[in-house]
Design a protein around this nucleic acid. Structure first.
Length: 870
DNA sequence: ATACATACC
DNA sequence: TACTGGTATGTAT
């Protein structure tokens, strides 16, 4: 243990710079020789110096950790062990071996594409990239230690004959699309990780496959490709596994996808060679890889395992052009894990590995043995992560493509130290970023400037605006200020840059799709709303969005004690705001004056609440405005108003992600049907919810049908609403005398919105300790409700919401100028329906690929342990 | 919310 | 001569 520390000191400079031979095709290299060359080439460079510095920081972290370790008592360790054991057995119970998860990964993808298209490269060591940086290398080059993420000039030192081919992303993207078409045949919901990699859930496919005739499992050699591509077919021999002789000419007329007679193993119609695949997963995966190869002349490797974490490791096992299946038994899994080096696990990188190594942990069995110690030395998320790994657990459910969280652009260049140049580059970056944002119709509130100085030191400066921005001018207004600050910081020295980047994040929804999704998932998650009002059809009435956010139940799973619910700090901020400033009614429509007043105060609370920040934030947004063209400026007031109002309402989401301790619950309550599900297994629970939701989707939903199809009469619509209300009213739900804004239903917490009047809110804050109940104020009609019964109050709010929804709907239907669209009026309706339905009448009308996982995903993060399994 | 670090491809 | 670019997330303040 002690030499862990000293050895890290000795070899400190090695671990960052040294060859990373963790990659397939790099076994048994002469590491020392390679590392010598790397060091010789790098030494003295600014890059190297910076790496040394970072290395020292890591070493300090490790020292600190070891110091901490030295202070741990036997008793502490024992206690920790008990908890760790308890958690382990709990996790063990939830182990799900029923899924067949596959991770597919193309072999040396970019390099393979280039080799395919340029046969002369085949037997040469080659890499894709530039003298500055390589993206990937072929297996030949790997023998020299040449690998991805290595600068080309160093690679050339290692392998003087190396051929470096520039990247051609368009080509890789095209190939990627081809393989994704094949992926979709096995799992339409597959999750791409990059152009060349994906997770697939083969469970359903394999089940179906059992009943497939042999003809459906028969595939021809060299189909597909001929029709599409130019004359490069003759170079495919390398790729083919069993049959060596491909004569493409033969197949030109037999491209039909209907494979021939069952039973004919090798020869199908027209003499085309065929292969019949079996019904097992292995065979199915082999078939998929076969098809990829036939279609693209490129090979893929795959891993098959009961969860994602393991599948990923497995795909590396028989790379290239191979596959590995880890059987779905507990024993196989635990055996597999025992000898697995921690570094092989996705998520454990250079630094984590080094820290673990310092504790004498190199493979996953050590991880398990030292878990008590790890639980004392690492953050909760980290050691939970480790715990999952040590047990061989991982996500058994492939999460849907998540919405992007940020978008950025950055560029490296020769030293740049002139302010004007930096400014104009900054503007350029903003321009490009704005163009990219436009493509996806996104707007974000946080702008981050990234700077890398010539000594490789990286700085980031961020600023969050009260409302979302998207145009070049808006972004630049912020980025410019950040840059200016940095330049001033550095003066009188010039700011010497080698890289500049601009990122935008904290997106708010703006397009219809998003709105639709949000309204569905809004049931489970509070999300930020677009405040810009730039898409008139969507944001005619800012109120709409609020409604969808108002009575949002939250699902907290297996969380015994949330630390501090976020609503509490929000309440505090509200309090501050009320103490601080008066209303600014001039911004807002009269009809909603009161409500909006509160919103403005909230904005103020955020700006004024934290002293220093307030002034910077304000000044920047003002200077942003100064440089903005008038249409943009006009957006601002409306913007901050409707935007901040979202935050005004209780936001339960983070409450569910933080501080989830124990796992004692035996049942979970479904947020759709409100019935208890007898399981602690999140996957089972998620499937239940999926089922509930899709049950609902089969039954047409009234409100949505009106919204989206506009083919229902108003009275029908009203009737349906009433029906919904009755359903809800009949539901007995007693939760009396709660002094909180959320009502616990088992471990699911349903959040109620409670809002105070501006003058009285201070005394109306929900309290947790004193005996007084809160005063309930309807967020819709703004009237104080006399009841303390949350069920009654809930019903009142629902009624108000429905009335408003109806009112708006009516107006829109009658005026028929702006018939209600999916993106606006339906939002609250749907939320209401979701919230109220007792048997999952919610309608799911997006393609089957979006909603269920969204929902599932939103539930899962409630548990910190579970975060790992997603 | 901000800054910085780690990780992945 | 020359050590990326894009995204997500964790950690610390």
């Amino acid at each position: 243990m002690e030499n862990g520390a000293s050895s890290t000191k000795q070899e400190s400079f090695l671990s960052r710079m040294a060859l990373n031979d963790n990659k397939a095709g790099m076994e048994g290299l002469d590491r020392d020789k390679i590392n010598n060359i790397i060091m010789e080439t790098s030494k003295g460079s600014r890059f190297y110096e910076n790496e040394l510095k970072k290395e020292q920081q890591v070493n300090q972290r490790i020292e600190k950790m070891l110091l901490q370790k030295a202070q741990i008592t036997e008793q502490q360790l024992k206690t920790a062990q008990v908890q760790v054991d308890r958690m382990a057995s709990s996790l063990e119970k939830s182990r799900d071996l029923s899924r067949l998860i596959v991770h597919v990964d193309m072999d040396a993808f970019y390099a393979a594409v280039e080799m395919r298209d340029c046969p002369e490269l085949k037997d040469k060591p080659m890499a894709v990239g530039s003298m500055s940086m390589l993206s990937t290398s072929n297996y030949h080059a790997r023998k020299y230690g040449v690998r991805a993420a290595m600068p080309g000039f160093i690679a050339k030192k290692l392998c003087p004959n190396l051929v470096i081919v520039p990247v051609n992303f368009d080509k890789y993207r095209a190939v990627s699309n081809e393989i994704r078409e094949i992926f979709a045949d096995y799992d339409p919901h597959f999750q791409p990780l990059s152009l060349d990699e994906a997770y697939l859930d083969f469970t359903d496919h394999v089940e179906q496959r059992q009943h497939w005739p042999e003809s459906s499992r028969t595939h021809q050699y060299c189909s597909g490709r001929l029709a599409t591509d130019e004359g490069q077919i003759e170079t495919s021999q390398e790729a083919v596994t069993e049959e060596q002789d491909l004569s493409p000419v033969l197949f030109e007329d037999s491209l039909s996808s209907s494979p021939s007679l069952p039973g004919s193993r090798d020869v199908c119609d027209a003499g085309a060679k065929c292969e019949v695949f079996g019904t097992s997963v292995e065979e199915a995966v082999r078939e998929m890889r076969f098809r990829i190869e036939q279609k693209t002349m490129l090979t893929a490797s795959a891993g098959i395992a009961p969860n994602m974490m393991l599948a990923k490791v497995c795909s590396d096992k028989n790379k290239p052009n191979g596959q590995y299946r880890l059987p779905s038994t507990r024993e196989a899994v635990t055996d597999f894990i025992q000898t697995l080096p921690v570094r092989k696990v996705s998520g454990i990188g250079k630094v984590s590995e080094k820290m673990l190594n310092a504790l004498d942990i190199t493979n996953c069995s050590h991880l398990g043995q030292q878990m008590a110690l790890l639980s004392l030395l690492f953050s909760e998320t980290s050691w939970h992560h480790f715990m999952g790994i040590s047990l061989g657990l991982g996500s058994t459910h492939i999460p849907r493509h998540e919405e992007r969280k940020s978008m950025s652009i950055e560029r490296t260049f020769k030293e740049m130290n002139k302010t004007e140049e930096q400014m104009s580059l900054c503007r350029e970056l903003c321009e490009e970023l704005a163009a990219d944002l436009k493509k996806e119709d996104l707007k974000g509130k946080t702008v981050t400037l990234k700077l890398k100085k010539v000594n490789f030191e990286v700085k980031t400066k961020a600023q969050t605006l009260p409302c979302a921005v998207a145009t070049e001018e808006e972004i630049f207004a912020v980025a410019k200020d950040l840059l200016k600050t940095e330049i001033e910081n550095e003066s009188p020295q010039p700011l010497r840059l080698r890289l500049m980047g601009v990122r935008i994040s904290a997106f708010v929804g703006s397009d219809d799709k998003k709105q639709m999704q949000k309204s569905i998932i809004g049931f489970l998650q509070l999300s930020k709303t677009d405040c810009s009002g730039n898409s008139p059809g969507v944001h005619q009435n800012p109120e709409k969005e609020h409604h969808s956010l108002q009575t949002r139940p939250v699902v907290t799973q297996m969380c015994q004690t949330p630390k501090e619910a976020p609503w509490r700090s929000q309440q505090r901020q509200l309090k501050q705001s009320q103490a601080a400033e008066g209303p600014q009614q001039s911004f807002f429509q009269r009809a909603h004056a009161k409500r909006l007043q509160l919103q403005v105060e909230r904005v103020k609370a955020e700006e004024g609440g934290s002293g220093e920040d307030a002034s910077t934030s304000t000044s920047t947004s003002i200077s942003a405005e100064e440089s903005l063209p008038s249409p943009v400026k006009e957006n601002h007031p409306a913007c901050s108003a409707s935007d901040q109002s979202d935050d005004f309402f209780v936001s339960p989401v983070e409450a569910s992600t933080s501080g989830c301790g124990g796992m004692k619950s035996e049942t979970l309550t479904c947020p759709v049907c409100f019935r208890r599900v007898e399981t602690t297994d999140l996957n089972i629970f998620n499937r239940h919810i999926d089922y509930c939701l899709s049950e609902g989707s089969r039954k047409p939903n009234q409100i949505l049908d009106v919204d989206l199809e506009s083919d229902q009469t108003e009275s029908e619509f009203t009737d349906n609403l009433t029906e919904e209300l009755v359903t809800e009213a009949e539901k007995p739900k007693t939760n009396k005398g709660s002094d909180r804004v959320f009502v616990e239903e088992n471990h699911l917490q349903k959040v109620l919105l409670i809002k105070g009047d501006s003058e009285t809110a201070t005394s109306q804050q929900p309290r947790s300790c004193d005996g007084e109940g809160p005063v309930l104020i309807c967020p819709v009609c703004q009237r104080t409700q006399t009841t303390e019964d949350l069920t009654v109050f809930n019903r009142h709010v629902d009624l108000c919401l429905n009335q408003e929804a109806l009112h708006e709907m009516r107006g829109q239907i009658l005026s028929s100028k702006n018939p209600p669209t999916a993106s606006n009026s339906k939002i609250k309706g749907r939320d209401l329906v979701l919230r109220k339905t007792s048997k999952g009448k919610s309608k799911r009308r997006d393609s089957p690929s979006s909603p269920p996982s969204k929902k599932a995903k939103n539930i899962q993060p409630c548990n910190t342990i579970d975060r790992f399994f997603r």
